[in-house]
Nucleic acid binder design. Structure first.
Lengths: 146, 146
DNA sequence: TTGACTGCAAAGTGTTTGCACCTGT
DNA sequence: ACAGGTGCAAACACTTTGCAGTCAA
């Protein structure tokens, strides 16, 4: 298990949150995954290891993680929420064809946040930016259809 | 009725989409509204005028408008989608306390889109940015609680 | 030991769909 | 006339909740 996961587990323990095999498996899976999985994807991925685990447990734990500040919930137009255990500042690029979500590292645009504050009178705590388009794979596929 | 609404109705007609009182009312309400209402809010707002209209009709028509490029669907973490008939480039500022959504005019960040393309190989069609924080009203309320 | 967690099933939301009837063009 | 729209209810997908039994600390 990576030290990142261990660090997260420590953080949970410090908050008085109990450690269970399911909880640990869900968090580990999320932290080691690059694909921003949905609750159902997590559920199905862990099924071999936890055949009796219920979806409710996945949802319950995701909520615990989000509240503990370990995980971020991403909502898109389509169906289910996706979950991201990478809490560093980064944006997402989504393929409209196949649904792939890729990270894009970029320093946060704090200057534009200040602009928003000046124009709206809000106190801005953060922002979220999503790009959408077509991924290289889908581009290749559609261009090969002559 | 504003000329903006009339123009939109013309656009629909040109696409071969039939005009009905319900459809017209939903579109007019959306275009004259500043609050990015949800389907249910639209439904309830039009209830006095159309007591027999069903929610399905609201959803059906919103889908028609989105497909016709007249309306944009906004999804947030919480429950329902919200709909925005302002198709100009702008971003949204959401109050985490009361849920108010305010528009923020800003020239689109096309330079960062190009950056994304270079780093990810995607063809980027657009982006969406949401700011979140506290609105002036809620700030006043919380600071008055000594 | 005991409060927190799990699994299950049932309930809740928001949205879509199937179908008979109706209406705009 | 008739393709397309409406209203209604049932179906859906995702998520939450209630509860009895279980387990980590």
């Amino acid at each position: 298990m990576s030290s990142r996961v261990e660090h997260a587990l420590q953080k949970l323990k410090a908050t008085g949150i109990r450690m269970t095999p399911q909880r640990q498996a869900i968090l580990t899976f999320l932290m080691e995954s690059m694909t921003h999985p949905s609750a159902d994807e997590i559920y199905r991925s862990l099924e071999p290891k936890f055949p009796n685990m219920s979806v409710a447990t996945v949802y319950n734990n995701l909520k615990v993680f989000v509240e503990a500040g370990l995980v971020r919930e991403l909502t898109y137009g389509d169906g289910a929420s996706r979950f991201d255990a990478d809490m560093s500042d980064h944006y997402h690029v989504t393929c409209e064809q196949c649904g792939t979500i890729v990270d894009f590292e970029h320093s946060p645009l704090s200057d534009i946040e200040r602009e928003v504050e000046q124009h709206t009178g809000f106190v801005v705590k953060g922002h979220r930016m999503e790009f959408y388009g077509t991924c290289p794979d889908c581009m290749a596929k559609s261009s090969s259809v002559h």
